[in-house]
């Protein structure tokens, strides 16, 4: 059975055009899937419908056999613990230390008092430190997050998601604010997480070349609709043009790059 199953997912804001229109696809456990599409195509909204940061208008999202749209309160919080999320702007609490930020990933497992006071068990702390060390941040655990570079902040973001022990990672433009070097480190890290920890990865990307290099499967979205769904090898120039419209001149260049590799 698929880990994530999306059926006829529709999201509209007020009377405006639909942000997402009848989206259906499913993702098997262990896949590395990239969603590509122009800005405003609905990629971010699609990810947020999966962990219900955004409420959907109609359709169904089933994650690990549980229907997400009707979840409320504690059940919704438990569901969210199984899905880690990584953001373009990292979204860390800058005034807190690296370790404190990573431990925020455990809040979903805590009762109110433990969470409010920040009481974490030794096991949880040890696990957080172990994950930070594996991401090369062992030296930085007591640093405040506003002292880190962009690439380091994103790795803290990944650590915060991993400490949840999730089945799946949702990554919303994880490398859009990073320099090429840091971007490569982050994408390599996500690939390792996918292969070694067997965690399913669903990543929104701007860069078609990055999607082609890393993803096992690509979903192309434009104006809230799925235009393409298949392995990178099947993604041809016409489809890229369909996904990105007329602005695809530079993207053809990135396709050539793929064949150069």
């Amino acid at each position: 059975m698929a880990l994530l199953q999306i059926e006829a997912l529709t999201k509209s804001y007020g009377n405006e055009a639909r942000a997402l229109d009848q989206i259906s696809f499913s993702i098997q456990a262990g896949e590395f899937v990239a969603i590509i599409g122009p800005s405003g195509a609905g990629k971010s909204t699609l990810l947020r419908c999966i962990n219900r940061l955004v409420d959907l208008t109609s359709g169904d999202v089933r994650f690990a056999g549980v229907s997400v749209p009707t979840l409320r309160g504690g059940a919704l919080r438990r569901q969210r613990t199984q899905i880690g999320m990584i953001f373009q702007h990292y979204n860390l609490v800058n005034r807190l230390s690296v370790l404190e930020n990573v431990l925020h990933g455990r809040l979903g497992y805590k009762n109110m008092v433990q969470g409010v006071l920040g009481l974490y068990s030794e096991t949880e702390k040890r696990e957080a430190v172990r994950i930070l060390e594996s991401l090369g941040l062992g030296e930085q655990i007591y640093k405040r997050c506003d002292q880190l570079s962009g690439g380091q902040k994103q790795r803290v973001g990944i650590a915060r998601a991993l400490v949840q022990q999730p089945k799946m990672l949702l990554c919303d433009e994880p490398i859009a604010s990073l320099d090429p070097n840091s971007a490569k480190i982050i994408m390599d890290t996500l690939q390792q997480i996918n292969q070694k920890l067997d965690i399913t990865v669903l990543v929104n990307l701007h860069q078609v070349d990055v999607a082609l290099a890393y993803a096992q499967r690509i979903i192309g979205v434009n104006r809230g609709r799925v235009i393409f769904d298949g392995p990178p090898a099947e993604l041809q120039q016409e489809q890229i043009q369909q996904i990105y419209g007329s602005e695809s001149g530079e993207l053809i260049f990135s396709l050539r790059e793929r064949y150069a590799i």
Binding site: L53, N91, L96, G108, G115
Partner: peptide
Amino acid sequence: VLEALRASGASWWQTVFQ
């Protein structure tokens, strides 16, 4: 930041204090 904590399953009071 608030969105990130909600996404990890944190409750409202936890988000406030953390």
